[in-house]
Nucleic acid binder design. Sequence first.
DNA 1: GAACTCGTGTTGTATATACAACTAGATGCA
DNA 2: TGCATCTAGTTGTATATACAACACGAGTTC
Lengths: 253, 253
Amino acid sequence: MIRRARFEQVRAASDPGGVALSLGQQIRNHVLTRIDSGEWPEGSRIPSEAKLVEQLGASRMTIHIALRDLSAEGVLLRRQGAGTFVAPRRIQSTFLELRNIHAEIESRGNRHSTDVLCMEVLNCDMAVATEMSIAPGSPVFHSVLVHRENGSPIQVEDRYVNPQFSADYLEQDFTTITPNEHLMAAGPLEEVEHVVQAIPADESNSALLDMKAGDPVLLLRRRTWSRGMIASSARLAHPGARFSLAGRMKMTG
Amino acid sequence: MIRRARFEQVRAASDPGGVALSLGQQIRNHVLTRIDSGEWPEGSRIPSEAKLVEQLGASRMTIHIALRDLSAEGVLLRRQGAGTFVAPRRIQSTFLELRNIHAEIESRGNRHSTDVLCMEVLNCDMAVATEMSIAPGSPVFHSVLVHRENGSPIQVEDRYVNPQFSADYLEQDFTTITPNEHLMAAGPLEEVEHVVQAIPADESNSALLDMKAGDPVLLLRRRTWSRGMIASSARLAHPGARFSLAGRMKMTG
DNA sequence: GAACTCGTGTTGTATATACAACTAGATGCA
DNA sequence: TGCATCTAGTTGTATATACAACACGAGTTC
C-alpha cells in the first residue's frame, strides 16, 4: 500500500481542494499534460507501462487501461513489443472551430450586444442528465442569452454548464464577456462535438429571433469536454435566413 | 479454468475454422450481433455483467472491459447501479471526415439507392463561373441526383464539375458509384470548403425530398480543390426533419 | 399518504498475478 | 559480412479479488 499512499500525495499536490479524480483520470491528465506542454513531442516514445508504474505508483493494469483508452481515442499509438508513442496530430480542421460570436461580429465591423434572459441553477431532468453525462437530479447551471448584431437577433444561446467545471458560472456578467470566453478561461478544452440541424422555429425561438413560427432555424448543438467531463452543452439557434456556417480544411497533412 | 474451457467450446461452435478471436472480441461480437438482430432493441436493458459471466463463461473484468469499450463508442449506455442499455442509434452524419453518402447509409445498415435526374454539359453562367473560379461561358459538367435511404429521399445532390479535373465525369454510372467516389479517385483532394445553411424548401426541393414547401432544408454547399483548381462544387440539400450533421474533434493532439 | 431507511443488485475502480505475443537489439556463427 | 538465433523489454489479454458508488424497490415509520 506504499504505492497507493504515494499517489495520494500526488493527487493532493496536483489537485488542491478540488474534486477527487479517479486514478485513471489522473494518469490520463498526467499524459495529456505532458503532451500539451511539449515535454512529450509528437511521435516520441513515452515511458513504458512499467516505468509509469514506478513514477505514478499505480498498478500496471490501471496504467494499461488508461493508455489503452487514450490509444482508442487517437491520442497515443501503441505497438506491442515496441512501446507507446504520441500520435501525430490530426488534421487541424478549421471547420466549426470554436466560434466566438463576439469576435465574429466585431470582425465584420458590427456591434455585438447580449440580452440575458435567464441565469439559474436547476436539478437536471433525464434529458439534460444524458446530454451532460451526469446523474439525473444533480444541479446544473442554465443560461439563456440572445446575441444581437447591430441590434438584430442572430443567436439564441441556451446553455447548460457543469458546476464541477465552473463553480462561478452564474456570477459572470454575460453582457461584457460571453459564456464561451468564460468557459475557455475556466479550463483546458479537450474535445468538441458539433451537431448541425435545420428545424422549424418554435414559438419561443421565433419570438426571440424575430421570425415567423415554422421558418427554418439553423441549430448548432455544441458539447465541450474538459478535465474528463462534459463541461458544457449548448444549443445555438440561428435564423436560417440570416446565418450560415462556413469552414475550410486543408487535406495536406 | 472450468469457465475458460467452457468458453473455448463457445468459440469453437460459433467460429468454426475461423481466425481465433480474443475473448474480448467475442463478447463484443456477442453484444453487437444481438443488437443488430433486434434481439436487444434500442433502449432495452441488456443482461448484467454477472449474467453475462454465467452465459459466456468469461470473467467479470473481461466482460466489463468489453462493455466499457462499447459504451465509449456510443453503442451502449451504462448507468452505475442501474444497468447497461442499448444506446439510441445515432442518425448522424460525420462531415469532418469526408465519408460519402453511400458508405454512410450502408454503415447504418440501410439500403442506398440513387435516382439520376440530370447529366449534362453546359456553358456556365456568371454565377457558376464565380463559384467554380473559371471563365464565364466555358463548359462545365452538371448532374442532379437524389439519394435515398431505404427508398426515402435523404439528399438532393446538385453538382458542377470542372471538365479539366475529370474529363469522363458524364460517362459514369452514378447508380453504382457516387460522384464523390468517382471524384476522389480522379485526383488528390487538397482542400474542402463547407457552408451550412438552413433554408426553406423551394418547390423543386420539396417535391424531390418529399416535404412541404417552406419546410426547413439543411443545405450543405461543398467545394473541393484538387491540382490547384476547384474540382467540384455541390449543393447537398437534406430534409431538416430527417437529417443532422455531426462532427467531433479532439483538441489534445 | 409521505418521507425515510435499508438491502440487494448493479456498475466503477484498483490491484496482483500469469502468461501470450511481439519488437528490437545483441549475440553467435559461418 | 550476412544470417539466424536468442534475450530482455514491451504491450496484449484474461483472471480472481476487493471494495466503492450508485439505483431502485421493499419495508418502516411518522
